[in-house]
Design a protein around this nucleic acid. Structure first.
Length: 270
DNA sequence: TCAAGATGATCAG
DNA sequence: TGATCCTCTTGAT
């Protein structure tokens, strides 16, 4: 379930479990054996997320870079580790906890300069306090691409995935196919602040809820459906069903390689 | 038992 | 734009 909030939350869990302690690092699956050996037994200094990327820094300069991709999972558990189940790419073991990584598209050992190169090509991350939304707007306001594609472009905005894309655009009443250059600065600022709010809430709860009592206009029908991903949403994966706000049928099409969902009435093209 | 699908990203053409 | 990779779960057969 990896959008930016998942990685941010995961970095916090890894730090709570391992930071400041020597950690056993291994690759039971065998696909990260050399990288694991290079940092095995080293003190884990800090885990940090940037968008959908995770960087785990070890004493001595090694940085383990993880990207969960579509299906990856990295679980932190208390206690002593059992025998690995399934394809465990990376295992961290500390005195009180262990963590298993499965299915990631990227798990590699980097030097600090290489990690910085990856950071340099990412757009602002709504979960980082130093993020500058104007940098993202500079890309959006000069682009003819649809805003629904720009939000998924990690060099424009780092951390937003398919659920936050669909839901934040619905909440902004913005049609996903609106070209970037037609999005005003005012609308972008409102959208950015809403994404920050939604993702911070996602960090707290570990799921994506975009329908929340404090956000609910009095006119809006409740309850929204709990999606399979575990959160309460307006349009994500609700194609063919009536919009909670107006009753129109939620639409879908593929945009930027992923299924997009929107309400044709609440999100009119302008 | 098997195929499809999933919240991602990259590469070739 | 389509193919491909990563792994697990769900639903159909």
């Amino acid at each position: 379930m990896p959008e930016g909030h998942t990685l941010f939350r995961l970095a916090g869990e890894l730090n709570a479990a391992f930071a400041g302690q020597p950690v056993e690092v291994s690759s039971p699956q065998g696909r990260f054996t050399d990288g694991a050996a290079a940092v095995d037994g080293h003190v884990l200094e800090l885990a940090e997320s940037a968008g959908k990327h995770l960087f785990i820094r070890f004493e001595g300069g090694g940085v383990v870079h993880v990207h969960l991709g579509l299906i990856g999972a990295f679980g932190v558990e208390e206690g002593t580790p059992p025998d690995p189940v399934g394809a465990v790419r990376l295992r961290l073991v500390g005195p009180m906890a262990y963590a298993d990584l499965r299915g990631a598209t990227t798990c590699e050992l980097l030097s600090e300069p290489s990690a910085k190169q990856i950071l340099a090509r990412l757009g602002p991350d709504p979960l980082r306090p130093d993020a500058d939304p104007d940098k993202a707007f500079d890309r959006i306001r000069t682009s003819k691409k649809p805003v629904g594609a720009l939000l998924m472009d990690q060099s424009v905005l780092a951390g937003v995935g398919n659920v936050y894309r669909a839901e934040s655009l619905f909440r902004a009443r913005l049609h996903p196919l609106t070209p970037g250059h037609k999005v005003s600065r005012r609308r972008w600022k409102a959208l950015w602040h809403d994404i920050v709010d939604l993702m911070e809430y996602g960090v707290q709860t570990g799921r994506i809820d975009t329908v929340r009592p404090e956000h609910e206009p009095a006119s809006m029908a409740r309850p929204a459906r709990i999606d399979d991903h575990g959160g309460e949403v307006y349009v994500y994966r609700r194609h063919g069903q009536p919009c909670h706000a107006c009753g129109s049928i939620v639409r879908t099409r593929v945009l930027a390689g992923r299924n997009l969902f929107w309400c044709p009435t609440c999100q009119r093209r302008r």
